[in-house]
Structure formats: C-alpha cells, structure tokens
C-alpha cells in the first residue's frame, strides 16, 4: 500500500490545492517531497503516525505523513 502525504497550510499550494497525495512506500520523506514538488526546506516538520520523524525516515506501508510549514514563526 502506498503512504499518504498530507500537506498543511501554505504547503498545499504545491499539491495544486489538494490536501494529500499518495507516494510509494520505500522512499524517504525527502525523496517523497521531491517527487511531489514540495520544497524540502519549507517543510518545518514531519509527523508520521503522530510522531515527529526526520526527513530521512523511510516510508512504510500505509504510513500517514503530515508535513507542515511554519509561516508565522518564533
């Protein structure tokens, strides 16, 4: 089963207005972001199944991944 990437806030613009997209498992988050055209450096944090993970995390079967930006900041 593919993994689901859910983009939040300003990152949705890179999914052409969609909230989520599917990517093959086995990719790292960083690779998945590149496939989807989401600039990795704008992704402030990645939550996989409710835990924060590094962008080097390798996507597993049916993972739910939330990617978020920080626009307002510190």
């Amino acid at each position: 089963m593919p993994a689901t990437i859910k983009a939040y806030g300003m990152l949705k613009t890179y999914l052409h207005g969609q909230n989520e997209a599917s990517v093959e498992h086995g990719l790292t988050i960083r690779q998945a972001l590149a496939v989807l055209g989401i600039p990795s450096e704008l992704v402030a944090f990645v939550i996989v199944n409710d835990e924060q993970k590094s962008k080097d995390y390798c996507l597993q079967d049916a993972d739910i991944v939330k990617v978020m930006a920080v626009m307002g900041g510190g």
Binding site: G9, S40, E41, A44, F45, D50, Q52, K55, M68, V70
Partner: peptide, 20 residues
C-alpha cells in the same frame, strides 16, 4: 490542522528544521 502536533512538541518542533 496541527493542533495535536504543536501541542506535543511546542516550540521545539522546529529544532530539526532550523538545523537543516
């Protein structure tokens, strides 16, 4: 969106990204 995630980590959620 993100209420649970922000609450879980607070301001520290951005540490890894700032590093990156």
């Amino acid at each position: 969106e993100g209420l649970a995630e922000w609450t879980r980590y607070g301001t520290t959620v951005v540490t890894s990204w700032c590093d990156e």
